[in-house]
Amino acid sequence: MFMRPSSRTAILDAAFRLAGHDGGSIEITFEATAKEAGVTKGGVLYHFPTRDDLVLGVVGYVAQRVDEAMLDRLSTPFEQATAAERIRAYVDVVAAGRLTRADLAIFAESLANPALAAPWEAVLSRWLAVDEVADRVVRARLRTAHLAADGLWIADATGIFAPADDRQAVIDQLIDLTHTAQSTEKEELS
């Protein structure tokens, strides 16, 4: 049986699509969102009484989508995942193109506003934390993989310096960094 997404989800999807069309600006209006979602402006206002509520809803929705994409990449429950497995999930999501130009624009614009940055910080801090790794070299490998994946996301999203010919080789290097770190992490636990 086909189930329609809730109006709230349809509105968030629509606002996200609008952010992607506009070069990524989160200058989202009630009117444009309503039109894109196929609902009335009143329908948008019912779920999001203020523009700030709508923008915060979109940021939270996008951060949640990123979190879910990374959870899909883990082969173990999150609570049991090592830092290397979490970073590898992030690299996998970036490599698969699951983080788009609109995701990047929403992320970048939200950083200037602490309320908008909070959903991203909640998601990314739990995935990209490496503080529990005792070995400084292993932590550095994991941070390098994370930061290089950030760069790949930016390159893919903007088309600037995108490593078209070398993209897979870059991804393989990032994955290798996480595998090397994973092996060392397991040795530390033994």
Rank of each mutant, 00 (worst) to 15 (best):
A89V: 00
R88D: 02
P49M: 03
E85K: 15
V91R: 01
T50N: 06
A96Q: 15
V66R: 05
T76N: 07
L54D: 13
V93H: 02
L45I: 11
L54K: 11
T76Q: 11
V44Q: 09
G57C: 07
L71F: 08
V44R: 09
A63W: 04
Q80F: 06
A84P: 12
E68G: 08
Y46K: 15
G60P: 11
Q64T: 12
A81V: 09
V58N: 11
A83I: 07
R73F: 04
D53A: 14
G60I: 05
P77R: 02
D67S: 09
A69E: 04
Q64R: 11
R88P: 02
H47T: 08
P49S: 05
A81Y: 02
E68R: 14
E79Y: 12
P49T: 00
V91Y: 04
L71C: 06
Y90H: 15
D52V: 08
R51A: 06
L45A: 07
L45C: 07
K41D: 10
L45M: 13
A84D: 12
Y61C: 00
E85G: 08
P49C: 04
A89R: 01
V44S: 12
E68T: 12
A84R: 03
L45R: 14
R65N: 02
F48K: 06
A81W: 06
Q80A: 09
I87R: 15
Q64E: 15
T50I: 02
A95C: 12
V59R: 01
R73G: 04
A83N: 05
D67V: 00
V66P: 04
A63N: 04
A95W: 12
K35M: 07
D53V: 06
Y90I: 08
A84N: 01
A89F: 01
R88C: 00
T40F: 09
T50Y: 05
V44M: 10
G42H: 05
Y61Q: 02
P49Y: 03
A83E: 09
T76A: 09
R65Y: 01
V39I: 14
R51V: 07
V94M: 11
R88S: 02
V91W: 03
L54V: 01
R51G: 08
E79P: 07
K35W: 06
A37N: 10
A89W: 04
K35N: 06
R65L: 05
G60M: 10
P49F: 00
E68M: 10
I87N: 15
G60W: 11
V66A: 13
E79K: 14
T76E: 11
V91M: 04
E36R: 09
